[in-house]
């Protein structure tokens, strides 16, 4: 059995979501290759080649692949699929975008957001906002899987795989127009050891930044938000933690002015330690919090900053 992992590229390197997906892939087979896609990805391919346990790295470059457009990624991967029994990608927005397209092109039922590899054909995945875990067995000859990165440890470094260049497919009937990426010097939400998240309680974008940014900077944390805070424009869409946003599992998660709706809990309840600051003692967030402070964040957060020194 051979497995292809589609890398999550980040400029000249690959994100640790790739390392985590490699760990899941190694549970299926010892023969794990990585595909790095996008124009100018040579350095990223070389970084991927250093991941321990990887057999070889395939590098596909074309203009259309630069933005991971689903049509071009699918055409590229389908061309390679003959040599693989399973194709894995992290459950990032890119992976979620192209993997089902790849699966349908191969007439395969995709398996989304896998949190455990039970055997070669059996996987566990959360359903109903994480309120149930489904164990599914696939009868497809090929498996097409997205992996929830927070559920797997990152594969280490120390590999020395060969990088092989392959043909990258051209564009399809969708073309890239523009992008607007949130710039931040803070750690990425999915990878941060500490996450501080703000909710509707903040009331405005200015207040959200004034409260959350200094705390995040003091803790070296990433900033997250509830859907209500994002919908109201207090925080960018990319900050949303939850069932339909990002899933995080940091060592410490601090929820400030967030009620703890099931859709929010779905994205953070696997955090090691959860702290909730909320003025409503009955807020559902306290049911999952290891440590809770009942109070107005406007007084609690400054006190927290002072206590942190």
């Amino acid at each position: 059995m051979a497995v292809l992992v589609i890398a999550d590229r980040d400029g000249d390197t690959v994100r640790d979501t790739t390392h985590k997906t490699v760990t899941a892939a190694l549970k299926l087979s010892g023969d794990v290759d990585i595909l790095v896609i996008g124009q100018g990805s040579k350095a990223a391919a070389e970084a991927a080649a250093k991941i321990a346990g990887v057999r070889k790295v395939l590098l596909a470059e074309s203009g259309a692949l630069s933005h991971q457009l689903a049509e071009a990624v699918t055409a590229t991967v389908v061309g390679l699929a003959g040599s693989y029994d399973a194709i894995l990608s992290p459950a990032t927005t890119d992976g979620k975008n192209f993997m089902p397209r790849i699966a349908a092109s191969l007439d395969v039922a995709p398996i989304s957001d896998v949190i455990e590899v039970v055997s070669n054909d059996t996987f566990v995945r959360p359903i109903y906002a994480g309120n149930a875990l489904e164990t599914v067995q696939s009868s497809d000859g090929k498996k097409v899987i997205t992996v929830r990165p927070t559920s797997f440890d990152a594969a280490g470094e120390g590999g020395s795989a060969k990088v092989e260049t392959i043909a990258g497919a051209d564009g399809g009937k969708a073309t890239f127009v523009s992008e607007e990426m949130v710039k931040s010097d803070r750690p990425e939400l999915g990878a941060a050891k500490i996450v501080v998240s703000g909710g509707r309680a903040m009331g405005s974008a200015e207040e959200f930044q004034a409260v959350m940014d200094p705390l995040a900077d003091r803790l070296g944390a990433a900033v997250g938000a509830s859907r209500a805070a994002v919908d109201a424009g207090y925080a960018p869409n990319d900050y949303q933690v939850g069932q339909t946003g990002k899933v995080v599992a940091p060592a410490l998660y601090i929820a400030i002015g967030i009620s703890g709706a099931i859709q929010h809990l779905a994205g953070m309840k696997d955090s090691k330690v959860i702290v909730a600051i909320n003025k409503d003692a009955d807020a559902p967030i306290f049911q999952v919090a290891d440590y809770g402070i009942v109070g107005d964040y406007k007084t609690v957060v400054p006190e927290l900053m002072a206590a942190l020194g």
């Binding site: 039922a109 875990l133 164990t135 599914v136 497809d140």
Partner: peptide
Amino acid sequence: RLTVKKVTAPPTRSAG
């Protein structure tokens, strides 16, 4: 293509 072998409740977190 998929057979559901079982559906279980996730590990619960208790209030601290």
